[in-house]
Write a protein that binds this DNA or RNA. Sequence first.
DNA 1: GCCAACGTTGGC
DNA 2: GCCAACGTTGGC
Length: 150
Amino acid sequence: MQTWLMKSEPEEASIDDLQRLGRLPWVGVRNYQARNFMRDAFQLGDRVLFYHSSCAQPGIAGIARVASGAYADPTQFDPSNPYFDPKSKPEAPRWLLVDVAFERKTTLLPLSEMRLQPELATMALLQRGSRLSITPVSDSEWAFLAQRLT
DNA sequence: GCCAACGTTGGC
DNA sequence: GCCAACGTTGGC
């Protein structure tokens, strides 16, 4: 089983929202590399580290699971939605999503602390200039993180 | 609000 | 297919 880190702005969808709803369609991915991870590499039951971005305390806020295969993100077809993509056609959807299911909250592991850990220096999230909203987490990175996510 | 870094677009 | 211009991300 693989572990992934997925970024979400808590103002839009926080770990508390996921806890309340139990399950969420991960709408709004508009990057081909991130889409391809969901389409080609995600497996049902894969672990998801739920990361809060663009907020006062960026960091890992909880753990979730991949709860569906990839399917068309409906927001790309809705002209009133901020994620609307006029170039995407229903017969050939450009953007996909997966459902994500709540597992548990963790005490927030701040980005600033993650940066201090040599064991995490290889994380895709921490690489210079990395902006990708979905990144893989290696087994050794997860093993280290698991001890700190309480 | 700033700005570095990156991805996408579109003219050629 | 190149690459400059532009838009976006996201930490600070």
